[in-house]
Design a protein around this nucleic acid. Structure first.
Lengths: 134, 134
DNA sequence: TGGACATATTCGTTAAGGCAAATATGATTT
DNA sequence: AAATCATATTTGCCTTAACGAATATGTCCA
């Protein structure tokens, strides 16, 4: 996560150089998100999601917060001021990309559906605060 | 360089995820630069520099211009507006990093030295316009 | 035309990182 | 304590991309 002087730029950009990780970052842009929602929205295996979250942790781009059985991930601001600037630009970039918008809609859909209609693995899962309709 | 829709974000960030390539980008920030100066300033082998320049070309981040025996590289603006914004932020980030400042000083030194003091391989090489003191 | 020079590409090897499948950990529930 | 659930890590395989060394290409000059 860090290097001799201050900040590992290469690791920072490497963390951004993967579609799955960009999708994860995009989904966290507005709120912290529970891992099970990443799995549901992105449609990849749980270990795959977990591995990519581990990479983002290593790069210092996300924080993890345990909440009982669940773990919520949120974006961290990079400790380097310029990195934080770039990171914010990247977020607005993602926000306008079509595939990313689709992911956000999928997340909203899954979060606003009434409990009984949710896939079994998501019933009882803690929804992101900004989307917790039911 | 491109993808189905418009722009390959992963390739863009992968191109930035390497120290040598960041150093090349930094050296081109102010002016187009001839390959031989990259080799002299960075101190890596010519094939290594050439390989990394090829990667930057593939990612659409640089243009190459032939000039007799020499080839000058310059930064391209990415065709995607948001990518261009991020790219400019990255350039200002590089400009304040210590290692990158050192490279710029090395470039200036090599360009301002009188011809006879230059290493043999650089005598006669076309200097970047903004630094062409002699 | 035949060097000599600047740059690019190829080859063989090695390390990093992607994936799926299997397994481990940590927390909750019964 | 055992079963269950959410998440993380390990393993083995494959691809990408790093490197140095060698070689190819393209341009100029004699």
């Amino acid at each position: 996560m860090t290097k001799k002087n201050g900040f590992d730029m290469e690791l920072f950009f490497a963390a951004l150089a993967d579609r799955t990780r960009l999708r994860l970052i995009n989904l966290m842009a507005l709120d912290e998100i529970c891992v099970c929602f990443f799995v549901a929205v992105i449609g990849a295996s749980q270990p795959k999601i977990s591995r990519h979250l581990a990479y983002l942790r290593k790069a210092g781009l996300v924080n993890a917060r345990r909440d009982g059985k669940w773990i919520h991930y949120s974006l961290a601001d990079p400790p380097n001021e310029k990195a934080a600037l770039v990171f914010r630009e990247v977020l607005t970039w993602l926000a306008e990309e079509e595939g990313m918008k689709l992911d956000r809609r999928r997340l909203a859909k899954v979060c606003c559906a009434p409990q009984p209609q949710l896939p079994v693995q998501l019933q009882g899962a803690p929804k992101p605060a900004t989307l917790a309709a039911s």
